[in-house]
Nucleic acid binder design. Structure first.
Length: 391
DNA sequence: TCTGGGGTCCTAGGACCC
DNA sequence: TCTGGGGTCCTAGGACCC
């Protein structure tokens, strides 16, 4: 309900007054991001094409995702939580894990459900967002408990009751068990956690492979060794766009690629990061999705260097299979903190894709955008490679 | 009803190194 | 002569999450 709540808060007179509210892509190819409980009653679910949602729920009103506002509120929630719990991990824009270990004395052994209710009220008070809270001895348990706490409630699972708690779920409800695994399992006649609890570990290993078999064996018993970790660094940055209509024109595709590059590079530099791997993703008109990537010997950060690599990758992808393009994306991985060890490049390597000049240009542009707005300075045409003609 | 955009993690094959 | 065993890194694809 997070997106629905934010959409209503942002536009009290519009979205705020709609009971059957659907937040998502309104134009042609959009899907549902989230829907109000009233709309869900008609069978509307997230990731469903908006057109289908409106068919199921003719009273539905679709509004676009208020992206910026959602990130803003998410930050506000996080800040509120940080002041209420010792360790806070953001799991997504609208999910957080709190490790309350060690707070018993400070809270005078207050029951966890009382603490959770207090946190819920505090977050609502400070951010305007109503959250649900689940608690348990493991992240897995807390997450599943949260599902039962909704809407707008609290649910705590006592220590020692984990396996018993797990037995009420279908396998498909376990986080990490998606459509593919559900399919495999149901072919063996396993649908509920109870079904799977009756199966030997060796059978699960044989059916699912050593890794997944063991993983599922542990999960259905409520075991989960992952810790609540407050400071996980970002591992990738990406931007992609599905076009209103499939694209065939190479020039137009290059312009889109440049836009995506500019967007991805600006968040890269905002985070004071550099990247060594550039990935280009293409989705053809028949929904076939392909990608190409290249890892460079040195990390880069400038639009120019990233675009140079991305353009070559896109050319190869387009040559391999020439279909109208539905979606184009640019991703950066292998991220490192700017000016970290790799500075041993005392002299620029002869074939380097990025030099001091490209970095300086990029950072200067960042400065201008910071003072005069993101749209103050935009690329006017396709850039030539650094070694190209005088342009 | 033709299927978004932002991520994370895993696997498997091949190159390469000692 | 036709063949090792350990490891890392890269690439492509896919499952999964919200």
């Amino acid at each position: 309900m997070f997106y629905v709540q934010v959409a209503r808060l942002e536009d009290p007179e519009g979205a705020g007054k709609q009971s059957h509210l659907i937040v998502g892509g309104a134009s042609g190819r959009g899907v549902v991001t989230s829907a109000s409980y009233e709309a869900r009653a008609f069978g509307v679910t997230s990731a469903m094409p908006t057109a289908r949602a409106l068919q199921l729920c003719p009273l539905g009103v679709v509004v676009p995702v208020p992206r910026e506002a959602c990130m803003e509120r998410s930050r506000a929630i996080r800040e509120a939580l940080i002041s209420l719990a010792p360790v806070v991990q953001s799991a997504s824009i609208d999910e957080f894990y709190l490790d309350m270990s060690g707070t018993e004395r400070m809270l005078h052994d207050e029951p966890l459900s009382t603490t959770a209710t207090r946190i819920r009220e505090e977050v609502l008070d400070r951010t305007g967002i109503s959250v649900s809270i689940g608690g348990g001895t493991r992240k897995l348990i807390a997450k599943l408990a949260t599902g039962l706490a909704k809407p707008a409630g609290v649910r705590i699972v006592e220590a020692g009751r984990e396996e018993e708690f797990m037995r009420q779920f279908q396998l498909a409800q376990i986080p990490g068990v998606g459509p593919a695994l559900v399919d495999t399992l149901s072919q063996r006649g396993l649908v509920t956690v109870d079904d799977a609890l009756a199966v030997d570990a060796s059978w699960l290993n044989q059916w699912l492979g050593e890794g997944r078999g063991h993983w599922l064996y542990e999960r259905i018993r409520g075991h989960d060794t992952s810790r609540v970790d407050g400071r996980e660094p970002r591992k990738s940055i990406s931007s992609e766009r599905t076009f209103f209509e499939d694209m065939v024109d190479e020039q137009a595709l290059e312009r889109e690629l440049l836009k995506l590059t500019v967007s991805v590079c600006s968040s890269l530099r905002r985070g004071k990061l550099q990247a060594r791997t550039v990935t280009v993703k293409v989705r053809d008109s028949d929904f076939t999705t392909r990608q190409g990537s290249r890892t460079l010997p040195e990390p880069i950060e400038s639009d120019q260097a990233v675009f140079g690599v991305a353009r070559e990758l896109m050319t190869v992808l387009r040559e391999r299979r020439r279909r109208p393009t539905r979606l184009l994306g640019v991703g950066l991985t292998n991220l490192t903190q700017r000016g970290f060890p790799n500075q041993l490049a005392l002299f620029e390597a002869p074939g380097a894709v990025e030099g001091k000049r490209e970095r300086d240009v990029a950072r200067t542009v960042d400065g201008i955008r910071e003072r005069f707005g993101d749209r103050a300075l935009l690329p006017g045409r396709i850039m030539r490679p650094p070694t190209g003609d005088k342009e």
